[in-house]
Design a protein around this nucleic acid. Structure first.
Lengths: 139, 139
DNA sequence: CTACTTGCAAACTATTTGCGTTACG
DNA sequence: CGTAACGCAAATAGTTTGCAAGTAG
């Protein structure tokens, strides 16, 4: 959507730096409010607005990705390497799956459809092992 | 999430029937408000609440799927056959791509990860041909 | 000093829900 | 008739935004 790069100079802020650090140090695909809760003790005046603004900024920089988990709220991740998501529809957990199933998938689509593919996402829906075992015990 | 089937008797309604018909007769992956606008002339008292309630109902019946297009609003489709989505990040259009690239993909994941896969979605992001041509003409 | 970033609170918007009414079976 | 589904309007909730104050460079 954004066609022309803005000429704003990027300025350092401790909030933004820590946000990215926290996001990079977890595999839990956090929500905005989880990040807020985690950083709040460190920045007593932190506001959710700042969290959202920095997430938007980091997404624009390509350092963070927004994940749609099917819920009403967004999740975020700082992992840049290619991977897929296993989304448990019982507990909402998202598990990363490393591995490139079909390396040339973007090229195949670009060629077959009249569409310039720049990226893709593959999400699997189902039941994680924890929930599966719980179901077994409850029946 | 819903563990036990409810014993409610499903009752016919013209609004619901027409909603599904409209959804089936288009390839445009409509939003709730688009469906509302289309049906409003036919049902002058139609409310968005009814549209949303029926969409939720039809989703539960497995007749309709909710699509996350990366926007702030949801899109819906009544197509049940397996297909992928090509999502243009310039105009927001969603194009269906028929074709099963990797038939056993669910099984592969189920086996490699400790996760019971029940389905998946594959979305490609990029630029549709219309936007690509427009960009060419504007530069 | 300049202007980017923050904190706060109000605004926004897609979606959901409570409740009284309509109408299917 | 009983109750599912509707219409209306208010509520919800995640996210965005305007503005004054703080702060990096």
């Amino acid at each position: 959507m954004q066609k022309y790069a803005s000429h704003k100079t990027v300025r350092y802020s401790r909030q933004r730096e820590r946000l990215l650090e926290v996001l990079r140090s977890t595999t839990s695909h956090p929500t905005a409010s989880w990040l807020y809760d985690v950083l709040k003790p460190e920045f007593p005046n932190l506001s959710l607005g700042t969290v959202y603004r920095n997430l938007a900024f980091l997404i624009e920089q390509g350092l963070v990705k927004k994940i749609d988990s099917g819920s009403t709220f967004d999740r975020f991740e700082a992992k840049t390497s290619l991977h897929y998501h296993l989304i448990c529809h019982e507990c909402g957990t998202i598990i990363d799956f490393e591995g490139r199933l079909f390396p040339e998938i973007d090229l195949v689509i670009s060629k077959e459809a009249d569409f310039t593919v720049e990226g893709h996402r593959i999400d699997f829906f189902g039941t994680c092992s924890t929930c599966r075992n719980q179901n077994r015990n409850n029946s």
